[in-house]
Design a protein around this nucleic acid. Sequence first.
DNA 1: TAGTCGTGGTT
DNA 2: TAACCAAGACT
Length: 356
Amino acid sequence: MEAAAETSRPGMPGELLDWYDRFARTLPWRAPPGTPPPPAYAVWLSEVMLQQTTVAAAGSYFVKFLSRWPTVHDLAAAEDAEVMAAWAGLGYYARARNLLACARVVSRDLDGRFPDSEAGLMALPGVGPYTAAAIAAIAFDRRAVVVDGNVERVMARIGLIEVPLPEAKPLIRALADRLTPNERPGDYAQAVMDLGATICTPRAPACGICPWRDPCAARAGGEPESLPRKAEKAPKPVRHGIAWLALRDDGAVLAETRPARGLLGGMLALPSAGWDGTEKAGAHGAPPFPADWRDLGIEARHTFTHFHLILRIHGARVPEGSAGDFRPAPALDAALPTVMRKALRLGLPALQSASA
DNA sequence: TAGTCGTGGTT
DNA sequence: TAACCAAGACT
């Protein structure tokens, strides 16, 4: 919409920063407004964890990672399996693989120093336009135009941008660019995102206490909650699969490490088949080895980004000497992605109560 | 460019 | 309860 071109006035960044100075949230990875920023390592770690992830979900993982691997060199020296297990439950596991790859590049090739430019940051694995801008702004106080989901919403409303996403992205970015100040860009970036997270919320924005209520074109128009408009999403299909739960008499459970790429890539899992798109059409998965497999009559249900999964659990008790990647159930549970945690927690009691 | 890639909280 | 949504990147 053309309205975007006229929206934004000189005082807006300052009004937002004043609000941020008074109401900034305390977050594990954040320095208080006006104080020196955290190390780039901490900013990078938090920003990767926060990709498509809520503040509440990322918090404990950030604390755990920073405590376990205090510097980028520590993380770079970690084993792949250690890092994947520590990431288990947070989702989007390609982030963990890229996190480790990035740490190793920074540690080995850059002497442990993160680039301070967006272009330099963008060259790192797992660092895209948003994350590069966020690190440049927050860790190095460089002027960078930070555009995440919060900023998209705030800009669409301020500028009454009625073009639906993703077509509206260039308009939104242009407006975000016009508003980004040269002073305190790091605090400003966090302030806009805080505004979107706490005031300019998707459903019921608190316009009455918004520092930008006066210049907001959508508020004047009366329906800020209707923005940003978004293209319709495709319905999620339902997929069916089988997971095999082999319980050894010493209590250990058979696990497998999934292929590095694709769904749950690189993660520990129960052996399974038929659901992740890797099987040929019509193929039926086979159990990991011959045993007295029984359909436990239990289904683990889980929804991924683009499909619903119903995972039927088959189980078998196997003798103590059985070879394979068997692991103690509690340790396995801790290292599993959520869908597999569900399958284990549903299937194990049924199998344990069954006679061998 | 459009599809892939997790999870949990909120409504 | 089902849909929506979150500090996106990669192919």
